[in-house]
């Protein structure tokens, strides 16, 4: 399993990197930790002519925090460094949970926050080497015109399975992009196109530079729960992130509530219904209602390895309820 041939560049500024990427258009890909991209290259799923290494670009590996601006994470911060950062550990334990749930220890040390967000979607018909894939027609993602999961479908149903996205979405994160049109700041949600074939809404030449997370308000709690078969080395079969902030004093009154999910659609889901909880007291009935809404919104497909789709769907409610209870618990304490 050798890597195919490609050119390599390691620009020393963000501007240089963007210009290079823009000039080469679709044929150049940025590489951060490489853990997602190099697997795709080895499996002959992607065929870039050039890799633009972001490793030498300065200032992309910073983690900064202020009470006014909140947390700023450079796109090239590794998951392991994110999880080890004292401020993140203190104020955003959900990010530690999510980062340490990715792949394995080594992959956490190599993989970056930016790369994790921008990772490709997964499908068990697609994420295999050319040798194994040859027994099937090429699917949408490989330029063909069939989906092996939903055979009648005109579109690709590959699932977004990143672990960080739901945690960051629940925290209300936004992202800064650098590129041809200058710097641009967007809600994180807009990074995801919802198109299984091209899941990340970046134009050629555009790079994810930084992730911003609002300051952690007092009396808030956030939890990420991941359904998997093993304790490590597994992509999520379902991931649920819940972030709650409580009003002062009155026990149980919700100030803000956010819920996000991964692995159950072509993009991570930020569940709008969770917003309705704001200003209300969190009762059992409301937790169940939220879980029901999440259940209705989730679309797990038979495209990930492991447990049945039916089971994954039935776990949505169970995991949402567990996550809400745990978030509530940590908000109170």
């Amino acid at each position: 399993m050798k890597l195919p041939k490609f050119e390599y560049a390691a620009p020393e500024s963000l501007g240089q990197a963007c210009r290079l990427l823009e000039s080469r258009g679709e044929e150049a890909h940025p590489i951060a930790g490489g853990t997602d991209l190099l697997m795709a290259l080895k499996n002959r799923q992607k065929f870039p002519k050039m890799l633009v290494d972001l490793g030498a670009v300065p200032n992309l590996s910073r983690i900064e925090y202020s009470d006014a601006d909140g947390l700023r994470i450079g796109a090239m911060v590794s998951l392991r460094r994110l999880a080890a950062n004292p401020i993140v550990r203190e104020k955003y334990p959900i990010l530690v949970q999510a980062a340490l749930s990715v792949g394995t220890v080594q992959l956490q040390a190599m993989g970056t926050v930016g790369g994790n967000l921008c990772q490709d979607t997964c499908c068990m018909y697609f994420n295999r080497s050319a040798m194994v894939r040859q027994s099937l027609e090429p699917c949408h993602k490989l330029g063909g015109c069939i989906c092996h999961v939903v055979s009648s479908s005109e579109e690709c149903w590959a699932a977004y399975t990143g672990d960080l996205a739901p945690a960051l979405l629940a925290l209300g994160a936004s992202v800064s992009m650098a590129g041809p049109g200058g710097e641009q700041r967007l809600p994180l949600q807009e990074l995801f196109s919802g198109d299984g074939k091209r899941p990340i809404a970046l134009r050629p030449g555009q790079l994810l530079a930084e992730i911003q997370v609002p300051a952690a308000p007092p009396r808030s709690g956030a939890v990420y729960l991941k359904l998997r078969q093993r304790e490590t080395l597994d992509y999520p079969l379902l991931g649920v992130a819940v972030h709650l902030t409580l009003e002062r004093g009155e026990n149980g009154h919700c100030k803000t509530a956010a819920l996000a999910m991964t692995a159950v659609d072509k993009a991570p889901i930020l569940l709008q219904e969770a917003g309705k909880l704001a200003g209300r007291k969190l009762t059992e009935a409301q937790i169940r209602e939220l879980a029901r809404a999440a259940y209705k919104r989730a679309h797990p497909m038979k495209n990930l390895y492991g447990l049945t789709t039916k089971y994954r769907l039935s776990m949505v409610e169970v995991y949402v309820e567990m996550a809400v209870r745990q978030a509530l618990e940590s908000a109170i304490h």
Partner: peptide, 20 residues
Amino acid sequence: TVIIDGEPALSCMTLALRCR
């Protein structure tokens, strides 16, 4: 697995040029 600048790394997923 190898160690690069004190961190564990998978050498099969690391471009050699990255180790400059």
